[in-house]
Simulated assay, not measured.
Amino acid sequence: MIKIMLAEDHQVVLNGIKLLLESQPDLSVIDYGKNGNEILAILKNGNIPHILITDINMLNMDGLELISHVRRDYPTIKIIVLSMLNDLQLMLQAFENGIVGYLVKNVGYEEMLFCIRQVAKGGKFICEEMSTLLLDNFRRSPSAFQQVDQIVEKIGLTARELEVLQLIGEGFTNMQIADKLFLSKRTVEGHRQNLLEKTSVKNTASLIKYALKNGLIQ
């Protein structure tokens, strides 16, 4: 059972997230708070989750400050940001503060659940909207490319994985890729995970960066 704590000051959003997570047999929302101070008080009482999902903009103590406190005092807790803000600089700052996942609030429920489970297994995750923004930035200043054939042979990518990688680089969601390639969404998720493992990167943004740097996608 993955124990989750929520930091969210909008009651409607909080209730929606709780309802989604508690519908899953492997997820449990053990507590929640409306700001960083409330979360720290809960943690101080010994109620420690596996994952903290926090907003950024909150009164009294915002998400970035909360992240710093949690990473310092409770290093076993994995932190995911769930924010209205699709701001790359803010996201990068949050990762520097110690988060392992970043989602925007218009994310689909399947992507949110995939993120939570990926993080619980020790991985990192950036939602597709933010990955696309990162891709646009990378394309403005591409690195020198190595020979594609050498890279493909070295890491053992299949033709199907290269197809999925190209579509990821074009910003398509797992469901859209599944529709285009006549595959199930679960199969596409499996290819995405294989790509992460074969390229030894932790998240989609790093995968895209790797692929661009090495000429695997244009």
Rank of each mutant, 00 (worst) to 15 (best):
L19A: 13
L19G: 05
E22P: 09
S23Y: 07
S23D: 14
Q24Y: 01
D26R: 02
D26Q: 10
D26T: 11
L27D: 08
V29Y: 07
V29H: 06
V29R: 04
I30A: 01
Y32I: 01
N35G: 10
N35T: 08
N35Y: 08
E38S: 11
E38F: 03
E38W: 06
E38D: 15
I39W: 06
L40T: 03
A41Y: 10
L43E: 01
K44G: 07
N45E: 13
G46A: 07
G46W: 04
G46H: 04
I48M: 07
I48D: 08
I51C: 08
L52H: 02
D55S: 00
D55C: 00
M58G: 06
L59G: 11
L59N: 11
N60F: 12
M61F: 05
D62A: 07
G63W: 06
L66K: 00
L66M: 03
L66V: 03
I67F: 00
D73F: 11
P75F: 00
T76A: 15
I77W: 02
I77S: 01
I77C: 02
I80N: 04
V81R: 08
V81L: 10
S83A: 04
M84P: 01
M84G: 12
M84F: 11
N86V: 00
L88P: 07
M91E: 03
M91I: 04
L92E: 12
V100I: 11
V100W: 02
G101Y: 11
Y102C: 02
Y102V: 03
L103R: 09
L103E: 09
V104C: 03
N106D: 15
V107G: 01
Y109R: 12
M112H: 01
F114P: 03
C115W: 12
C115N: 12
C115M: 12
I116Q: 04
R117P: 03
R117A: 00
V119D: 07
A120D: 10
K124L: 00
I126S: 09
C127K: 03
C127D: 14
C127H: 06
E128N: 15
E129H: 10
S131K: 04
D136Y: 13
N137T: 10
N137P: 00
F138R: 04
R140K: 14
P142L: 06
P142M: 01
S143M: 13
S143Y: 12
S143D: 14
F145A: 14
F145S: 15
F145H: 13
Q146F: 12
Q150S: 14
Q150A: 13
V152S: 06
E153N: 15
E153R: 15
K154Y: 10
G156I: 02
L157Q: 02
L157V: 04
T158G: 09
R160C: 09
R160A: 13
E161Q: 14
V164F: 01
L165T: 09
